[in-house]
Every structure is written in structure tokens, then in C-alpha cells.
Design a protein around this nucleic acid. Structure first.
Lengths: 129, 129
DNA sequence: CAGTATCCCTGTCGATACTG
DNA sequence: CAGTATCGACAGGGATACTG
């Protein structure tokens, strides 16, 4: 079957490792953290305040995961009233563009998506009952 | 370095609705489905066979979700030995590019990510015990 | 063929409490 | 301040069985 029409570059082959990276890097809180850290390095609680709704647990877990994947860097800047600074890594910076592209897509098509959802819900409404 | 690619900092505020869309269209199976349907319209079981590891339940749920979001179109093409064809929608086609960008990022940086993970795991190894 | 329905299990998430 | 530890609630995912 020829895929020259739909797939100009024939790229979209998903292997599990790719899926895995996406799961670790584009999950619920990662995008917000990425966004925040791209603006400026941030301490734990500052980050926490900057991202409404996140809990310590989730924030810690997400930061750890991003750190493990080389997206953010963790740095202890004091010993006494322990201060820890998180900053975006060079690798993390490169992630921003793809994420921006995706977010731009969402922004662009949000209304269309919303409409599709309403229409679907509307059409589905009478079928389940 | 000038960041013409990245949005000016602070502009891309992640609001819940964006997050919500991402969750619905970039989740575990959606990318594979998008990939497959971008190549050609597909019937349910064909799709199932094309995507190793997916179950009926997950496939059904994901297809429904994508349909609801206007990403794929569902079409009954026969009544007797019921046949259903799924195809990518115009909106769905526009999603391909952003996804492609993200996947390209993964491909490009995969080895670096893997290395970061190994280094992290290595450094962490002795601390948790 | 193309689902729906059910059970069950695991992972995740939030809330709370505690620590260096 | 920056976490760790623990618990309970809940959604998602797989396996299985059944249906138009």
C-alpha cells in the first residue's frame, strides 16, 4: 500500500520506547513544570505555588522523573535552611519547541474540538438511554 | 541564543482545558491509532491487529474518545456481517504534524535520554537503600 | 465482525502526617 | 524549606464472556 499521500515522510512508527518517553515527559504536570522552569530556575515551594493544584507528592515525583530523563537539573544551593533549585537542562530546552507546537495546535483547534465534543455528546445522548 | 521557535516566556500558560485535550489525544493508544489511520481507513479488527498489545476495550474506548474529539470518523459500511470503518478526519490530519514534531524530538534525543536515565539510576542506586 | 458488560488488579493521585 | 512515608480513593487496563 502506498503511503505517499497521507505520510509524506512516512515517519510515524510508534515503538514502545517512544511511547515511554512521551509518557514520562508529557504527562499531567510535566508541561507546567517545563513551562515554569523555562522562565526561570525555581525552588521547590516556589514551583509548587506557581503550579496550582499540584501536591508535594506529585511535584516531587514529576521533578524526579524529569530529572531522571535529563530534562531538569536539581541543585542544592544551601545546607542550613535547605534550599534546592530546579532548572531546565539544555536537553529540556530542546523539548520546549515540540511542546509549544503541540500546545499551539490545541489553541488553534480548541473551539473545533469543543464543538465536536458537544455534537458527539448531543448525538450520543439518546442512544445510551 | 534567540528563541524564535519557543514562545516568548510566560505566554503559554497551561490551562486545564489544554491539559485535558492533550490527555485525550496524546494518550497511550491514540498516537498509534492516529498513525495507522493516517495511512489508510481501517476496520476495527484490522486496526486491532495493526496495533500490537491493544485490547478491544482500550481500542474501543480510545476510538470513541478520538471520535468524540473530532479526530477520527466512524462509519458503518454494512449491516449484515457488520462492518465499521474508521478514518482520520480533517481535524485529525492537522494533528499529525504536531505529533510528528514531538516524535521527531524523541527520536533525535532518545540516546541522550537513555544516557541520562542510566546515569541517574546509577547515581541513585546506592542512596535508596 | 464489532462491539458491550463484568471482574479484577495495578498504578496514580490526593490528603495527611512526619522529618532533617 | 524540601522533602519522605503512608493510606485510601479511584481510574485505566487487561482478561474473559457474551451479543446483534
Amino acid at each position: 500500500m502506498d503511503d505517499t499521500t497521507a505520510a509524506p515522510h512516512g515517519t510515524l512508527r510508534i515503538d514502545p520506547s517512544h511511547r515511554d518517553v512521551l509518557d514520562q515527559v508529557l504527562d499531567k504536570w510535566s508541561v507546567s513544570i517545563l513551562d515554569q522552569l523555562c522562565e526561570q530556575p525555581c525552588r521547590f515551594n516556589a514551583l509548587r505555588r506557581a503550579i496550582p493544584g499540584v501536591t508535594q507528592k506529585s511535584l516531587t515525583a514529576t521533578l524526579r522523573r524529569l530529572e531522571r530523563n535529563g530534562i531538569v537539573e536539581r541543585r542544592v544551593i544551601a545546607d542550613r535552611p535547605v534550599a534546592v533549585e530546579y532548572r531546565i537542562s539544555p536537553l529540556g530546552k530542546t523539548l520546549r519547541e515540540p511542546v509549544d507546537v503541540v500546545l499551539a495546535w490545541v489553541t488553534t483547534h480548541q473551539s473545533r474540538i469543543d464543538r465536536a465534543r458537544r455534537e458527539f455528546d448531543d448525538a450520543t445522548e439518546g442512544s445510551g438511554t
